[in-house]
Design a protein around this nucleic acid. Structure first.
Lengths: 134, 134
DNA sequence: CTAATTGCAAAAATTTTGCAGGACT
DNA sequence: AGTCCTGCAAAATTTTTGCAATTAG
């Protein structure tokens, strides 16, 4: 990670421990939407002392600070996304892969939600990915 | 539940035990999108012997047969929806209420998914419900 | 130096499973 | 009658928590 990026995080009040840096670096540019366990297992290789508690604590902190997003797409398992700008996803029901859909989607807020405070929406497309459909 | 409805389920190969009937009746017309535990607790009152295993088994069966849908909206907790036709949802981030959005939403399948086999999509609107926004 | 973070281990929450007895068609 | 279902309890999976030792700023 660049010095500039490190300063950026520090300025926003993030205490940058080696563990947190490792998690941020693992997530940066990662499009696989890993689960907490995926992250833990990946980091364990180069950082044998890291614990689940730290992974969960850090993920929760990063979500709270708005640096990553938590996805509730796969049943009973959170997945994490380093892209925080509004975008959407495809979920392969066979291999459970989650793919980013960056194309802008315009939806008028439905009439029946007129008394609601709608902040955002997310679209999930379901089906089979190219690898699984054959 | 009407005799007609019972016959309808039986014809589709569903063995209708009292437990399954109770679960079906509880879900019919229920718009609260209950979790497995909500269902278990509600049934326990009139059906003290019912077990979690039966609730989970039955829900899994009903999902497999297409009589209900499983929603992965609330973090790490499945919620169930007796409405199986294509529709969408609003999720209140404060009280965790899930509300049906029945208005038809048209979205062209994004160009980047042209090699994917997209079967359906679901939109989730996030924000605050009327009760929580004040 | 001080408050925040880490790692461990235990606990909590949700869901799944094996199996013996019982119920449905 | 035979297969499938139920209920119990134990197990599996994912996430959270308490706490003493350590570390970042």
């Amino acid at each position: 990670m660049t010095e500039e990026k490190i300063l950026f995080y520090k300025k926003l009040g993030l205490k940058l421990t080696p563990q947190r840096l490792a998690i941020l670096e693992f997530l940066e540019g990662n499009t696989s939407h890993p689960s907490a366990e995926d992250i833990y297992r990946a980091l364990k290789k180069n950082f044998p002392s890291i614990s689940f508690a730290t992974v969960y604590n850090t993920l929760e902190l990063l979500v709270r600070k708005g640096f990553i997003k938590e996805l509730n797409i796969e049943s009973s398992r959170k997945r994490f996304d380093p892209l925080t700008h509004p975008h959407h996803h495809f979920f392969c029901k066979r291999c459970r892969k989650i793919v980013d859909v960056n194309q802008k989607i315009d939806i008028p807020i439905p009439e029946e939600l007129k008394d609601y405070d709608v902040e955002e929406f997310q679209v999930v497309f379901y089906g089979l990915c190219p690898d699984c459909k054959s």
